[in-house]
């Protein structure tokens, strides 16, 4: 069973996309933990740790990803949780993608991505435990 945490960090108040993804992953047979809006990096990593998820799917539309994502990645690293597959979605300008990948995000999914593509990506890349 693949467990996924869908996380909305920061002040960004738009979670329609995150909910669509959560629903699609559930329909693909995964267990999706959704923790609601306005999560801090600490809260996200604590939830990922407690729920022992295989995948962390972060959704950011506010432009705060250059600050928030590295913080989340550092906390994951500090907790020895390098085996989690971290995905990023929302509005991430193309110029920012290399930096996101550089700090440990495995893939960035932009607007309009087919949810099946995300499901397939997770199935293919999720690690054994």
């Amino acid at each position: 069973m693949i467990r996924v945490l869908v996380a909305k960090p920061g002040l960004d108040g738009h979670d329609r996309g995150a909910k669509v993804i959560a629903r699609a992953l559930r329909d693909a047979g995964m267990e999706v933990i959704y923790t609601g809006l306005h999560q801090t990096p600490d809260q996200i990593v604590e939830a990922a740790l407690s729920e022992d998820v295989d995948v962390l799917a972060i959704s950011i539309l506010s432009g705060a990803h250059p600050t928030l994502v590295p913080r989340i990645m550092r906390l994951l690293h500090d907790n020895g949780m390098n085996d989690i597959l971290v995905l990023l979605g929302g509005i991430i300008p193309e110029d920012d993608v290399p930096a996101m990948l550089g700090c440990g995000v495995k893939h960035v999914f932009g607007p309009g991505t087919d949810t099946n593509e995300i499901v397939e990506y997770i199935r293919k890349n999720v690690g054994e435990r």
């Binding site: 069973m1 559930r26 267990e31």
Partner: peptide, 27 residues
């Protein structure tokens, strides 16, 4: 599908922020 959306953490935010609390969602 066997899938699930586990949303109980949303309403438990205050308590799960406390290090003396461990919360786990089960399907």
């Amino acid at each position: 599908t066997g899938g699930a959306i586990l949303g109980d953490r949303i309403r438990m935010q205050e308590s799960v922020d406390d290090k003396g609390v461990y919360m786990r969602s089960l399907a």
